[in-house]
Design a protein around this nucleic acid. Sequence first.
DNA 1: TTGAAAGCGCTAACAC
DNA 2: GTGTTAGCGCTTTCAA
Lengths: 337, 337
Amino acid sequence: MKINITLKDVAKRAGVSVATASRALGNYGYVDRDTKKKVLKAAQDLSYHFNSIAKGLRTRRTYTIGFLLPDITNPFYTRIAKGIQDVANEKGYNVVIAYDDSMSNKTKRFFDMFFQDRMEGLVYSTPYNEVLEEMCKITLKKSIPIVSCYGTKKVHYSDLVQSDSIGGCYKATKYLVESGHPNFFILKVKESSISQRRFEGIMKYYEEIGRGIDPKYVLENQDYSDRCGYESARKIFKIWEKPTAIFCFGEQLAIGVMRAAKDHNISIPDDLSLISVDDVIASQLTPSLTSVSLPVYHAGEVAAGLIIERIEEKKRIKTREIYLEEKFIIRESTLNV
Amino acid sequence: MKINITLKDVAKRAGVSVATASRALGNYGYVDRDTKKKVLKAAQDLSYHFNSIAKGLRTRRTYTIGFLLPDITNPFYTRIAKGIQDVANEKGYNVVIAYDDSMSNKTKRFFDMFFQDRMEGLVYSTPYNEVLEEMCKITLKKSIPIVSCYGTKKVHYSDLVQSDSIGGCYKATKYLVESGHPNFFILKVKESSISQRRFEGIMKYYEEIGRGIDPKYVLENQDYSDRCGYESARKIFKIWEKPTAIFCFGEQLAIGVMRAAKDHNISIPDDLSLISVDDVIASQLTPSLTSVSLPVYHAGEVAAGLIIERIEEKKRIKTREIYLEEKFIIRESTLNV
DNA sequence: TTGAAAGCGCTAACAC
DNA sequence: GTGTTAGCGCTTTCAA
């Protein structure tokens, strides 16, 4: 078997010129219906796969978009990836996924590949870092469009897809208060702008009912880890004998709280209601977590739509910021009192 | 700014021919040291990124390997992906990840891309399906190497990387029996060859201590879902008032058991010890699950090593089957009695 | 040590 | 409708 079948082989077998074969296979230009059939048959017979490298060289198009995420192992990000792939594929684009574990210089490597392979658009979900910013500048100079999807907002002139953190936490707060938890503990994260916005969602509801938040209910955490959640919960349990509810600004924080509750023989939801934000594995836990669910898959779909629109549109589109609605899902970890 | 800088531009700026520029940048052939410096400087100045499309067309090499997995959203598979990427990148290869949600014809699509983009090797983690088998045949005909990493074994002439299911479950059984659970329930899955091998691990230990497995302790499940785990656990709880331990052949099964236990007011591990296989989110649950942990990341590393070896080795290597050791990790869901 | 030129497989003018 | 031909950006003989 000949390993590399080329258009020339197909053309010869079909008894036409390469140009005609190209037109028949590429579905463009004028081709007689019978000729086309012959060519298609010849291609089939030889199990011809056209060489998109050669095509790309000639047409200067690759129909490929790159997606950069911080952790390929985290379903939060891979759900975005899936959303991107699904719409990209449907529109005839491929997507190359790469991750950047902040320590190594993978970002640089990714962009080398990104440029060398002449990808036509970039979507990223990574937090801010200097290399990223610098590379994005070069990308934009080359007129390659960029969309941030749950990534840093700092890079200018690129579109943005995220979700409405204020609205999501607003709903959760309303539910908590209305179901008999006028006061609950809040596990925030220091120096996180998204954590701040979630907090604003809570405040917004409190303002509407003419109240404020007593600072004694707010605990700042170093990061979003379960360890921090565990420590904060222990603090709460030590000082307050009977907290009725805790609202965590991240799923791992909530997982830490669950562990602490178990250690202190506090039952969720009977003794304590628990709410989290993120909804990655919330439904698989026991009890399953009531949570603010981020529409990550859909965000990926939207991001892919935006980037492809920019790739295909010649005229300048002004930058867009899209905030999708967050859902609030009631599961087993909360109780009406 | 000129958008497409080519080698010609670099050569002109450095005052040499494209051939010399190519040699300087590609690090091969004879180039005067000063000339090389000049070329490198020119490339830098113009922020030149060589066009790997053109290079690929000429050299017939793409340094790209494809990885096909069933669910990009499942950390089990993305950990494999990470292992593959880490070693591939280190050796100068890129990897393109694609998923195949069995329903749609994504497999076909993946292979179109795979062939068109002239990828040089294939790693897959997908279960058997006809399209896959057919495509693998074509792949092998084109002399492109294939490695299955926790995927189906049915495709011949490709290397295989998995783990030693018998050994893993053997260890778990030994632990269970020695810590005071001479009899425990086993949640198997029907028509799953891997489930069968896990069962053999249990039998192996039993044989060593001169016992057999009483069939009343074995429950066959339709699939690996939490729903099945839940139902099986309910059956067990109905008939046996005090089962002391359950061994699940999958993490989702165990999650179902946890839910059922909660519904029946059975405390894990105080009333019931629970062991699972897989270790995807086991450590994040409350209580965290004692489990047989599959070395997925490492399997990915090994798979990448094998495929690259085949790509770069001209001489025929005979097919290999590698079974990595499974670890047994004791966490909170089991108790010595 | 360097340059000229051919050609990888394809598409797109242009001519027929 | 179809064929001829030039060239996309690079590597690689071959000659100088």
